[in-house]
Design a binder for these strands. Structure first.
Lengths: 338, 338
DNA sequence: TAGTACATTGTTAACGTGTGCACCCTATGA
DNA sequence: TCATAGGGTGCACACGTTAACAATGTACTA
């Protein structure tokens, strides 16, 4: 059927071993023979059988890119940037297999033989069992986006807390005191970290907020919309809202404008993530940029280094977030200490 | 190192052949032996070596999901829906490998041994060489989203032309006569199809438009923004703009509001794709829904059927698009024939 | 001239699984 | 008692590749 090294060997009048060595550019082979064999191979359109090679080398050339879920809580931009970042690094040296962890009933088919390494884009502790499973099976693993407790793993995470801190601090410096928060999906570590940054900024600046200023959400458009509607019915209407991600911010803006209020004149809105569309909303959204693509790229680099040289430290690295100031926040002049 | 069928064979006191048969549920094996072997296997946490199986069965269990490019012209939502749609179908029977075609310098590593089948999410004729290569190599193949000429392949495409026709027709029925178009990325078949729908609607309704109403674009936010700015400087300002996708529509809205004009009061805007955020923009965007996820799902089903039973017709199937009416179009009363 | 070192190539086995064929054993019927 | 059938199992090989080790030839040294 298809061309194998034995076919080439026959044509070249050498053993298949010699062909194998020649094609792998082994220094053992006479340069002339090597070149002759390579010419024959390419003239026959030879392509190596990866299964056979995998079998003997015990390498699959598969990398897994696993998301906590592909069904909810994962924004499209998130998936996009991650896939792009990783693919840019691995080129065609590896196959990138994309999957949602919650697609698996059991992890039976995840093992060293099938995956040379795993990149987990973690968004909640729900994938902790998966991470522990991979660790136990000794599959090279790197976890991105969420800080993992308990298990010692390579871990790259954005500094969500300080990002949230800075954007709330920015609101305060613009004179806002009545600052509400629309929270992310319960159980997600990022939800908690962003909440902590918010709390800490308020505390550091001695800002007291009324009860009912914290509204739960789901990281999606709908919950941003619904949550904002709840806030708009609050007896003491906030002057600014920190939304735990940009999707929710978009939903919030919708709710506000539907009541014939204006952003930012009546209410300021800030988000988190800096999605592609955020700069093109009306008004353009002030938000925090999360370096997903850079993190994915760096994650892939480290994972490959680990697979190939086995010499990387298993520690947590924080990636800086960046405050992106646009048009969705107004300055307030009233009774403040400025 | 890891458990093989030979280990199981030793423990069960049978040959590895029997184990292989038992685990594959062969009718040749005595039910009791079979059950005993299966018990031992699961107690040892046995997982088959896919490379070995692939080698002998000549199946890789890999499916490729290839995009024309991952770098520009592919929106995040597009990638997201496609990955989700396909993964939902293949479960863990296959590995889904996601890649941009333009990542490859040559297609050497794409072959029957490495991929049981390919799903091409095509957005431009630039991937025609890839499609022809796959066809020639006889790799099971299905092309989604773009109609392929020249080669006979399984082909699922949204009916872009009729979608564009309907949304432009809708504009006309709302009284618009000065309808401009922001075109998509040059060379993309969808760009052309949407343009044709636009042209045809105008023709059918006898609407004449001034020169300069057709502006080229790139399917991204920036070109929508830039293109709209050009239109706003036109001596005869359009009352409505058909944007070739939602990303461009968002850019267009940005350009309009920046000039202190309003959508839809001053200018109506319609898009194409119905991205997740489109319903949450202000104003919510009237657009055309493209059934990417449904198409991906159906594509995966057909590809698997082809791989496994080899009995599917290679023809083109059109998927209906759907007009989604929201708030970005106003009704015009002036001099019309209504 | 014999011995040694080195460069180049070949022999053979191994990776883990699936399968054609032969084999054994038991039950059945003549 | 013997031939036959058929259910159940094992032997041996195949898949395409890599690699340890052996073998060959050649040049150089003592």
């Amino acid at each position: 059927m298809s061309v194998t090294i034995k076919d080439i060997a026959k044509l070249a009048g050498v053993s298949h071993t010699t062909v194998s060595r020649a094609l792998n550019d082994s220094p053992l082979i006479n340069p002339e023979t090597k070149e002759r064999i390579q010419r024959i191979a390419s003239s026959l359109n030879y392509t190596p059988n990866f299964s056979a090679r995998s079998l003997v080398l015990d390498r699959s050339y598969n990398l897994g890119l696993f998301f906590s879920t592909l069904h909810s809580g994962t924004t499209a931009g998130f998936l996009y940037e991650a896939v792009k970042g990783v693919n840019d690094v691995i080129k065609d040296r590896y196959n990138l297999i994309v999957r949602g962890i919650d697609d698996y009933k059991d992890f039976h088919n995840i093992n060293r033989k099938s995956f040379d390494g795993l990149i987990v884009m973690s968004q909640s502790a729900s994938d902790q069992p998966f991470i522990e499973y991979a660790t136990e099976k000794e599959i090279p693993l790197i976890v991105l986006n969420r800080q993992v407790d308990g298990v010692q793993v390579m871990n790259l995470v954005p500094d969500d807390k300080s990002g949230a801190y800075r954007v709330v601090e920015y609101l305060i410096r613009q004179g806002h005191r009545r600052i509400a928060i629309l929270e992310g999906k319960p159980g997600f570590k990022s939800t908690q970290a962003r909440r902590e940054g918010y709390d800490e900024a308020l505390r550091d600046y001695g800002v007291q907020i009324p009860g009912g200023y914290s509204v739960p959400g789901e990281y999606d458009l709908e919950s941003g919309y619904a949550g904002m509607n709840r806030l708009l019915e609050h007896p003491v209407r906030p002057t600014a809202v920190f939304c735990s991600n940009d999707d929710m911010a978009l939903g919030a803006v919708k709710a506000i404008t539907q009541r014939r209020l204006k952003v930012p004149e009546d209410i300021s809105v800030v988000g988190f993530d800096d999605l592609l569309f955020s700069g093109f909303m009306t008004p353009a959204l002030t938000t925090v940029r999360r370096p997903i693509e850079a993190m994915s790229r760096e994650g892939a680099i480290r994972l490959l280094a680990f697979i190939e040289k086995k010499q990387v430290e298993k520690d947590t690295v924080y990636f800086h977030t960046e405050l992106v100031i646009r048009e969705s926040v107004t300055t307030i002049q009233e009774a403040n200490d400025q």
